[in-house]
């Protein structure tokens, strides 16, 4: 009986544990940016500052709106759901203040985009890291 309860608990624990080991923010390996603070990340992804410290315009990339990693990223960064972040971005977009990060639907595509563009910035699951990109922050 106790054994069965343990099994159930273990099963629940497995279900509840996030599938991602950690979310990392990455840039092109040649980008001079390093060690972004939480504040810099929030400013970048909430459209308050669209530039890297070296003055280059950042090409901000986002994951698919229905993906788990996007949910985790914004939950950890600003404590808001994807719908709340979308409502916030809608304000900036439809008042002409700033455009939201560009969506790339797969982590593979996102990695490729970052390798090809020295000013791109995105986030992926730590487990999917590859050569040619550089981690500048960890969000959870």
């Amino acid at each position: 009986m106790i054994k069965r309860q343990r099994l159930i608990l273990l099963f629940i624990a497995l279900l509840a544990s996030p599938s991602q080991a950690g979310v990392v923010v990455i840039v092109n390996a040649e980008n001079t940016a390093s060690d972004f603070s939480q504040r810099q990340l929030v400013d970048l992804y909430m459209g308050r500052n669209l530039y890297f410290p070296n003055g280059q315009l950042a090409l901000r990339l986002d994951q698919s709106p229905s993906s788990e990693i996007r949910r985790t990223f914004y939950e950890s960064l600003v404590g808001k759901s994807v719908a709340q972040v979308n409502a916030y971005w809608a304000r900036l977009l439809f008042t002409g203040r700033a455009s939201p990060p560009q969506v790339i639907r797969t982590s593979k595509g996102l990695l490729q985009a970052i390798k090809n563009n020295p000013n791109a910035v995105g986030y992926i699951d730590e487990k999917e890291l590859e050569d040619g990109v550089k981690v500048i922050a960890r969000v959870n």
Partner: peptide
Amino acid sequence: FPANSLADDFAPNRFSFN
């Protein structure tokens, strides 16, 4: 439609429609 009609390309979009 998806939230933003943004294509999956990696160059900054020249045109946008929302």
